[in-house]
């Protein structure tokens, strides 16, 4: 190493060099020794697969995009496609058609399928930011490993679900 050519050896005495070396090593080892003896205090390691029941992620944690449904199987998505436009990498695909609205008797734009490709998602949050009706939000589930990527393409609206009343006003 370059320190052999350096002047460090010359301007420091041989024995004081040894003394300094041992002293600095002991200083470092006293710190690691302190942590070694107090290993229970201040330990931040989590025993992950064992603590799955108690592990709670933060409420804003970006795990996956979900669409909440209420007890009547109704969601808030009007099919405006703002999330599809906002998404930078095409993770969201909305298939919609015009269905007959029972109340007004007119044909109205409604979602058929809200498809979310989790495998393409970069968790940037722009879709949720763009949604005018708060139809989609972040879910805290992060255990998304599957055996085939086709399981990562999800339909967010549940089968038979319809639009919640009063969302469009």
């Amino acid at each position: 190493m370059a320190w052999l050519n350096n002047s460090i050896l010359e301007d420091m005495g041989y024995f004081s060099d040894i003394y300094q070396g041992i002293k600095s090593l002991l200083t470092g080892m006293s710190i690691t020794g302190k942590y070694f003896l107090n290993f229970r205090k201040g330990s931040i390691t989590q025993q992950y697969p064992e603590n799955r029941e108690t592990l709670k992620m933060f409420e804003r944690f970006r795990g996956e995009v979900i669409m909440p449904h209420d007890e009547n199987n109704e969601h808030r998505c009007t099919g405006c496609q703002a999330c599809e436009i906002a998404c930078p990498n095409g993770s969201i695909e909305i298939i919609w058609d015009r269905q007959l609205d029972e109340e007004s008797g007119k044909k109205k734009k409604m979602i058929d399928k809200h498809i979310y490709h989790l495998g393409m998602c970069t968790m940037c949050g722009l879709c949720i930011e763009a949604c005018p009706t708060d139809a989609i939000k972040w879910g805290q589930n992060f255990e998304n490993s599957v055996y085939d990527r086709k399981y990562l393409d999800r339909v967010l609206n549940k089968p038979g679900s319809k639009l919640m009343k009063g969302v469009e006003e």
């Binding site: 070396g21 600095s24 090593l25 200083t27 470092g28 690691t32």
Partner: peptide
């Protein structure tokens, strides 16, 4: 300060880095 005690003031580390 622990960072300093562990690495900055360590003689081996100083010899590896000074003048390099």
């Amino acid at each position: 300060p622990e960072y300093d005690a562990l690495l900055t003031n360590n003689v081996i580390f100083q010899h590896r880095t000074k003048g390099v």
